[in-house]
Design a protein around this nucleic acid. Sequence first.
DNA 1: GCGAATTCAGACACCGCTGTCAGACGGTGA
DNA 2: TCACCGTCTGACAGCGGTGTCTGAATTCGC
Lengths: 333, 333
Amino acid sequence: MRATISDVARAAGVSIKTVSRVLNKERYVGAATRERVEAAMTALNFSPSLAARTLAGSRSFQIALIYDNHSPFYIHQIQEGVWARCRQEGVRMLAQPVDVASPTLAREVGGLIDETRVDGIVLSSPVTDAAPVLAELERRGIPFVRISPGTNHALTSSVFMDDAQAADDMTTHLVNLGHRRIGFVIGHPNHMASDQRLFGYRRALDRAGIAYEPELVRPGLFDFASGAAAAEALLALPAPPTAIFASNDDMAAGVLAVAHDRGIPVPARLSVAGFDDTELARAVWPPLTTIRQPTRDLAYTAASLLFEKSDGVEHRRLQHDLMTRGSTARPAG
Amino acid sequence: MRATISDVARAAGVSIKTVSRVLNKERYVGAATRERVEAAMTALNFSPSLAARTLAGSRSFQIALIYDNHSPFYIHQIQEGVWARCRQEGVRMLAQPVDVASPTLAREVGGLIDETRVDGIVLSSPVTDAAPVLAELERRGIPFVRISPGTNHALTSSVFMDDAQAADDMTTHLVNLGHRRIGFVIGHPNHMASDQRLFGYRRALDRAGIAYEPELVRPGLFDFASGAAAAEALLALPAPPTAIFASNDDMAAGVLAVAHDRGIPVPARLSVAGFDDTELARAVWPPLTTIRQPTRDLAYTAASLLFEKSDGVEHRRLQHDLMTRGSTARPAG
DNA sequence: GCGAATTCAGACACCGCTGTCAGACGGTGA
DNA sequence: TCACCGTCTGACAGCGGTGTCTGAATTCGC
């Protein structure tokens, strides 16, 4: 049967409180005692009941990762990162997909906290910018860290990259190749990063002395279909762009598909650039020039911030990289 | 402050136990009493402590989903399916990535069960066939369901599709198009489904009276790179195949990339087929002809089996579909 | 109209740990 | 020598619910 803490105590000839001390690495346990207890624990194959620890103590050894569904690749990396850090800490991760548009979201999150008593929360974009949720978390005073938030940077701890600079870098890359008419596909309007990326695109154009043309900029939803639709529109223009920069890889894949369909060789006649460097970027052809977003590391760092529990608000900026692959080249002619 | 069950009891003018009865939908609670209690619960915004319920009762309101990392798309759909069913049941899902090759895996899983007291477990391939894990679960008598297991079908409840038939269908599709030299890329050796798919391929060839040629069959690991490597080898053959059937979409994407690199038009000169119908199948160009595997439904059904807790072992086979898209066509000439 | 079955509600122990407090012990400074 | 401190360990009371048992009120069969 399952071993309990009192079984261990009996086997080691100490009180259950002493076993508890060893379990929690508290001070004031003699070396000899500790060893006896540890031996008993392994001998009995003891795993403490999380439920009992949560109920009796002030920690639950669980944190929650809250996200809304967008790219599976992105979510996968986020989960990976948070989970890896949790594992080091001996803490469980509760993955909680939500609908950021749900009117009851704040209450759901509140219920989650009450039920599970999680020790902290990692928020992934776009839940990072859902005001009711932030207010609820604030009200309860539960520690939380946001990954790539778009608003109120100062308020809470967060990890992020410089989306504007990254988009600027990519646009500059295209400009340096010789492109002058560069199409842009905006990201999902729910995500604040979308604005940042658009801003970076415009800033780079501006610096290069290229006039901003609204017709070259199309809305998107971070998915394949919207990328394809945007490409259709851009390529139907009287003076179509020689390069298209999509705000994520999924949409860039959509752009690629449209180009292939129309027999437009990439990159010879059309350069295509993405953003994120998900696995998709290397699975399409030609492989996408894209911005490597350190997604996994962002998530890992977010979890770290939670565990380090420095009292104050802390921010960490992580570096991005421009990954030059086969989908971009000098314009024809 | 957080409301407890005794707050609710006081507010409703009943005993704690009666509130507990309402919470658990037990019998023998008067309609009027139930309403008073429910009103008090919403008024106080009461969420019961999972830790306390777990400790005192015989359920934990949690199940675990155990998987080893392979395609992010696949995992994403599996999580989605299990999670959707859990939500209906008011049960939390603990996502637990593991390394199926780890020698301590069974112990880890045992520890997970002891710590969390999960009510049941969903196993996803290839953990479905890790003998030590199965033995551990069996020993503890904890309910579990396997998704697409490869072995010991009779032993435990499972949901699956007919991988052999699906591969047979795809191969037959290619044969019917007129292909005679059909390359095949095997899946990851850890996954039992890989054998089944190879078997289906051979069976279809056999029925069509086409001799099996070992040189047309290459090993793979379910990832892009191994698909590309297999394609390189196949296309370097003195008599290269006119079609390549890869055991999943990721590898098929690798095949496509090699074809593009070599300037071999798809599907005009080479047909390419995948397996799974992940989002990737529609993100590449041309979109992949593939087998739609009802991954999300498999996961959903697996969770259902867990909750329905019919005493006996139960199996559910789900249907697959042949999705004909742009990557396959009649061979040239 | 009366005993028995059924419906309803509460008392109480306890699930397996942690927090608090108090006690024992040996070493230290005055 | 004594008071005092740091170190080590145990007793004990909960944490917030559920399972079991017991008892009262109601319905039912004949």
